[in-house]
């Protein structure tokens, strides 16, 4: 038998961490610009957060407290899996509470509770290139970014308006960072876009399969693309969370039967639980016990 494999702190070897760290520093210095990096194989499949995991593995230290969410929830399987991975390979403390975390790795959501200075939000990104669906070729999109040639994106959004009467992009809604780079916010619902603007937290984005890292430093302008006659709007829900009664939060639809029965509940499980513990009750919630 061969010897048991040995893994470094936070799984990645030091040379890989250095390479990723250098990319992160450049990303912070050029907000919204996608820094190419030589993404490594991870012990989980591409598309499952390898970019985010590589970023987290490169920044995390023993004093960090890590929170991992997927679709807003701490208890989704992929979030549990990634959290367990870091608890194992970096022996860090983990939490589900947004306020307690120093690093939050996320897939598809930004927590409802406002982030604070010193926190780092690490996004898992599948397709980092916001222009990819207008122009599949990397050589072309690189040119477009270099020349700040974003007309095509506006044409696409305007075609939406012509066809559907509105901009039909509901997630991965493109933003402009600090007035320069058009950036993909990862497939978060556009509901979360305003949270990116002037956030006190550092936002890092990792796309493993596509070999890109980008960043939005704290207190940086992040503006969702729109038109004067069709200003950017976020989603609004007709009913509050059925468990905690929250409004102005992002909700998941849960099907209750096959006759059209359904309810809406908070996508951010931590925020929902905290609200219920504070005594908020929705139409189907029973307060504290429901959170257990």
């Amino acid at each position: 038998m061969t010897a048991l494999p040995q893994y470094n702190f936070a799984y990645l070897d030091e040379q890989t961490k250095r390479m990723i760290r250098r990319a992160i520093l450049k990303a912070i210095a050029i907000p919204g610009y996608q820094v190419p990096f030589s993404s490594r194989e991870m012990p989980m499949p591409y598309g499952w957060g390898t970019g985010g995991v590589q970023v987290t593995a490169s920044i995390i230290g023993p004093d960090d407290v890590l929170k991992v969410i997927d679709q807003g929830a701490d208890d989704t399987t992929n979030a549990v899996s990634i959290r367990a991975f870091f608890a194992k390979v970096a022996q860090v403390q983990t939490t589900t509470h947004t306020a307690e975390a120093s690093i939050i790795q996320t897939r598809h959501r930004i927590p409802e509770k406002p982030l604070t200075e010193g926190q780092v939000l690490v996004y898992q990104v599948p397709i980092p290139e916001p222009l990819r669906f207008l122009e599949p070729r990397e050589t072309e999109t690189r040119k477009m970014h270099a020349l700040e040639e974003y007309g095509l994106m506006h044409v696409k959004l305007y075609e939406d308006i012509a066809r559907h009467g509105r901009i039909a992009t509901t997630y991965a809604y493109p933003v402009k960072v600090e007035g320069r780079y058009v950036m993909d916010p990862s497939p978060t619902p556009k509901f979360d876009n305003p949270k990116m603007h002037m956030s006190p937290a550092l936002q890092l984005f990792g796309a493993g399969r596509e070999h890109r890292i980008y960043a939005v430093p704290p207190y940086t302008e992040v503006v969702s693309l729109d038109f004067e006659d069709h200003p950017f709007e976020i989603q609004h829900f007709a009913e509050p969370c059925a468990l905690c009664g929250a409004t102005e939060v992002y909700l998941d639809e849960v099907i209750l039967d096959d006759r059209g029965g359904h309810m809406f509940v908070c996508s951010d499980t931590d925020n929902c639980e905290e609200r219920r513990q504070a005594g908020h009750v929705g139409s189907l919630g029973t307060g504290r016990e429901a959170a257990e």
Partner: peptide
């Protein structure tokens, strides 16, 4: 690295 990252951010 975290000091450098925080400094640039």
């Amino acid at each position: 690295f975290r000091a450098l990252m925080d400094a640039l951010a």
